[in-house]
């Protein structure tokens, strides 16, 4: 198998020239987006260079502490990103639930996947641990963000129906069942859709990367299938935990709706 063509500095520069041309077109057409394009290009470059150096270091100095530290940073970043991304106002109680669901849901999926399915050795091998954890955490983050928006929106816009159900003697669980199911559906829908299009509409990033770096497509596909199952499991588990614990934050121990003051 041929090894991959190493990109030279001048080749990288050519890739940026592509963006410069794009910037000219954007400016010429009067689309006021050149600032966003510039900033995001710059951010992406800096973040990846930094990550690259960290990864090189971590891969060369295998140490369980580094792996653990990186997972913690990923989780914190993901949770923070959910809070920022969700447009609705979040109570402290629900923020806590988001954090708990993310940590429990992703960690158990990551550990099952790495230690049972792939069976890596040593258990903290950063070469497997970091990219796979990243994919599971990233996808769960997207899923739970959608779930949070739907749940909070639904609870707020359907207060009257929920309260009426409670007045008839419904438990909080029954009263919010429709909204909870709805939130779960919309949270896992993107994952399901991406599975349906996979291999036909687009080649997934991880598989593309592996094929580019010279790994047999068959192996790449095996990994891709396994990782998709891992992602589906992790997203579902995280979102189930979130909606099952999350709806409770809208009720007090007297089964009354908590109204925001």
């Amino acid at each position: 198998m041929n090894s991959i063509i190493n990109l030279q500095i001048y080749q990288m520069a050519l890739a940026y020239v592509f963006i410069v041309i794009l910037l000219f077109i954007v400016k010429f057409r009067g689309i006021a987006r050149e600032k966003e394009i510039l900033i995001s290009t710059l951010r992406m470059t800096l973040q990846l260079i930094l990550t690259g150096y960290i990864l090189v270091y971590v891969l060369n100095n295998k140490n369980p502490l580094y792996t653990i530290l990186i997972i913690i940073i990923m989780e914190i970043f993901a949770i923070h990103n959910i809070f920022k991304r969700v447009k609705v106002k979040l109570s402290n109680r629900i923020k806590k639930i988001i954090a708990i669901s993310m940590i429990l849901g992703t960690l158990s999926s990551i550990l099952y996947f790495l230690l049972v399915v792939i069976n890596i050795n040593p258990w903290y091998d950063p070469r497997y641990f970091i990219p796979i954890a990243g994919m599971l955490i990233g996808n769960s983050m997207t899923g739970i963000s959608l779930g949070v928006s739907r749940l909070v929106d639904g609870m707020n816009s359907q207060k009257h129906l929920i309260e009426s159900a409670l007045m008839l003697g419904a438990t909080p669980k029954m009263a919010s069942k429709k909204i909870v199911n709805n939130a779960f559906d919309s949270a896992i829908l993107p994952t399901i859709n991406s599975m349906i299009g996979m291999g036909i509409v687009f080649l997934p990033g991880m598989m593309t990367g592996q094929i580019l770096s010279g790994i047999s497509p068959v192996t790449a596909i095996e990994y891709q299938i396994a990782i998709m199952l891992g992602i589906l499991g992790s997203v579902s588990l995280t979102v189930i935990l979130f909606v099952q614990l999350g709806y409770r934050t809208f009720f007090n121990d007297q089964s009354q709706l908590i109204l925001d003051e």
Binding site: H160, E163, S164, A165, M167, L168, A170, A175
Partner: peptide
């Protein structure tokens, strides 16, 4: 609340038929 049921000032109608709406109280 199952002994002392309240009818709210603006009636709550759930999506579905008249039958669904009558039965939903019993389910709750």
């Amino acid at each position: 609340r199952r002994n002392v049921v309240m009818l709210p000032q603006s009636p709550a109608i759930f999506n579905g038929s008249i039958k669904d709406n009558l039965l939903i109280g019993l389910k709750f």
